[in-house]
């Protein structure tokens, strides 16, 4: 067990630089986005008010107030989130392939550690999961700061305040930051399951190389079908047989089965089939 934690720590350290850069980009870009957009709105407001001789309320009537909604719609806000998502998706693959690449094949060392090889798998998955949660936490800390920054920059008359809850409700962020614990478990449980499926597919490729790509794809397809089996049954032979809550519970079960299966197959491949 202690070697699992050491591996998690080690894997975290290997990605920490890029990770901190990502966090930095999110912070800088989103803060800059708030400042730039607030400024451009205020500049526009003062120009229009001066040039067209409108009163404040006429301006607000015609052009609307500034709210955090505009902020979240901009590339300054979405861009770094998309960048982080893409980076972490790539890292799901790179976290394995980096051990094989280059002159220095670190995978020798990893496979010769005096610990169950599945710990390598689990520690890598843990690190991906922790990194996702870390960025989510960062976003949650950042939102109130950004909200207050906007309040501080834009006078009360010109803005419509939104709570964090309202902000999360208005766009895709409700997927990333679910509002209920059930949704959280569904979204992140599914995410973790996908990471496991991909990891096992990668190990198929690493074990059988070219043929392994095929095996990996077949495994991935099989796992996805298995996971959605209740829904597939529901819409085919068992027409509307389950209540929605039952369906959810069944997906929970198939999800756990897929995760368990992925870990089991991954363990088998690491112990019996892997090649350096």
């Amino acid at each position: 067990m202690s070697r699992y934690f050491k591996l998690v720590n080690f894997e975290l350290n290997r990605f920490i630089k890029i990770y901190l850069v990502l966090a930095g980009v999110i912070i800088l870009s989103q803060i800059a986005g708030v400042i730039l957009q607030a400024n451009s709105y205020l500049r526009m407001a003062s120009e229009i008010i001066n040039v067209e001789m409108l009163s404040r309320s006429e301006f607000i009537n015609q052009y609307g107030t500034m709210s955090f909604y505009q902020i979240t719609q901009s590339i300054w806000f979405d861009g770094p989130i998309a960048l982080s998502i893409v980076s972490l998706l790539i890292y799901v693959f790179f976290i394995w392939y980096r051990d094989w690449l280059g002159k220095n094949t670190f995978v020798y060392r990893l496979l010769m550690l005096p610990t169950a090889r599945i710990n390598i798998y689990l520690s890598k998955a843990t690190v991906i999961f922790l990194m996702v949660l870390g960025l989510i936490a960062l976003q949650l800390v950042l939102l109130p700061i950004e909200i207050n920054l906007l309040k501080w920059m834009v006078p009360l008359d010109f803005r419509t305040d939104m709570s964090i809850y309202e902000i999360l409700m208005t766009n895709y962020m409700t997927i990333l930051i679910p509002l209920t614990i059930t949704e959280f478990i569904i979204n992140y449980g599914t995410g973790l399951m996908v990471v496991f499926i991909v990891f096992t597919a990668i190990l198929f490729e690493r074990s059988y190389r070219w043929k392994g790509i095929l095996f990996g794809l077949i495994y991935g397809a099989f796992a996805v079908v298995l996971f959605f089996m209740p829904m597939i049954l529901q819409s085919t032979i068992l027409y509307e047989f389950f209540y929605p809550l039952e369906l959810l519970a069944l997906h929970f079960v198939t999800g756990l089965i897929v995760m368990g299966l992925s870990v089991w197959v991954g363990n088998f491949l690491l112990n019996k089939k892997i090649r350096i």
């Binding site: 220095n104 094949t105 550690l113």
Partner: peptide, 18 residues
């Protein structure tokens, strides 16, 4: 797994992170 405390391998390339 415990065998790796008893036997080790020195390949001809470095296997530590560069």
């Amino acid at each position: 797994k415990e065998s790796y405390e008893k036997i080790t391998f020195i390949p001809d390339a470095t296997i530590m992170l560069p």
